[in-house]
């Protein structure tokens, strides 16, 4: 059984008042996420990430398709008991203090008064809200609200958590805290599903990612798979290389590109298919010294930009229908 499963999950919004027409926010999303995975849900602005999360929380209903969490249909109270959710740009009640908010939410899970206090204070410690916890939330900054949002998502020790852009609004230290928190959740066996457009977060945290663009899934898989197939080649940096020796090497060894870094200092790029040892031997023989040799990985960013650029842009339904 998967922790999260969606089947052809689709959401169309109706836009336009005089001539209402469907607008495709999410089209036939099928995903399976196993227990204990940290799953990154990536995509540019307006890709449909928040829409997906709201469908999973049953804050909106799908146009068609189906979604399950922990083997039960979304919206089931038993499911809600075992999950946590951080909304995008969370907002709670102005008139409650951070402490009161967490205790209120804790009460909804049936925790005793002592238990509520214990959980609230432990979680506020964990997300780094200090004495401000006694302030009404109207006085909270964006980043502080974000931290309260993360704390409230964890009030019931959830088995699956959904974070919609957990790093948004946080300072660098805060981002690191949350990164560590996600890793701690993973170590506890918690499944984490988070959306982001910050790729470094995904690279640091995720076992698997899905990339969404214009409401459609364009790619999904383990990061290592996605990136492994796209190793570009090798980069050699050498010094003491004369121009004639370079010209000679270029004509024979299949060098894809050479960048001059300084006097007699060059960065040479080799395709994956050419082992760098031969060239290196040649260059050393010509009197050059090796400064560095690096494999050229495609970054998630390169991958992302390529995938998103290739995604179909059409989101109205008229043309796809006829």
């Amino acid at each position: 059984m998967d922790a999260i499963r969606t089947e052809a999950l689709t959401k169309h919004f109706t836009v336009g008042f005089w001539r209402p027409r469907p607008y495709l926010a999410l089209e036939a999303l099928t995903l399976q996420i196993g227990h204990g995975e940290v799953f990154g849900f990536l995509g540019p602005n307006g890709a449909g990430k928040t829409t997906t999360l709201k469908l999973l929380m049953q804050l909106i209903y799908p146009t068609s398709g189906h979604a399950e969490i922990l083997g039960r249909p979304v919206g089931d109270v038993e499911v809600k008991r075992r999950i946590g959710y951080l909304p995008e740009n969370p907002y709670f009640y102005d008139y409650l203090t951070a402490e009161e908010l967490l205790e209120y939410f804790s009460a909804l899970f049936g925790h005793s008064a002592a238990e509520r206090r214990r959980r609230a204070s432990a979680l506020l410690d964990e997300v780094g809200i200090g004495a401000e916890r006694r302030l009404q939330l109207r006085k909270f900054s964006k980043g502080m609200l974000q931290r309260v949002g993360i704390a409230q998502a964890l009030i019931n020790d959830p088995e699956v958590v959904f974070f919609d852009e957990p790093m948004s609004g946080l300072d660098p230290l805060g981002r690191r805290h949350i990164r560590e928190l996600i890793l701690r959740l993973r170590d506890r066996g918690c499944t984490v599903f988070f959306s982001s457009h910050v790729l470094s977060d995904a690279e640091a945290l995720c076992s698997r990612v899905a990339i969404l663009a214009n409401g459609r899934l364009v790619s999904q898989g383990a990061l290592s798979e996605i990136l492994a197939v796209t190793i570009r080649g090798w980069e050699l940096v050498v010094s003491g290389l004369t121009e004639t020796a370079l010209a000679h090497a270029q004509s024979s060894a299949g060098i894809r590109g050479a960048t001059r870094l300084g006097p007699e200092r060059y960065a040479l790029e080799l395709p994956m298919t050419v082992p760098p040892e031969h060239l290196l031997a040649k260059l050393v023989a010509a009197g050059a010294t090796l400064v560095s040799l690096n494999p050229l990985h495609d970054t998630l960013e390169d991958f992302f930009v390529r995938q998103v650029a290739a995604a179909p842009e059409e989101r109205g339904l008229e043309s796809t229908r006829g």
Binding site: K54, K80, Y85, Y91
Partner: peptide
């Protein structure tokens, strides 16, 4: 309107 309902309705209530 203020979307505080997102946090509340995802707790175990109908």
């Amino acid at each position: 309107e203020r979307r505080s309902i997102y946090g509340l309705l995802t707790k175990p209530i109908r």
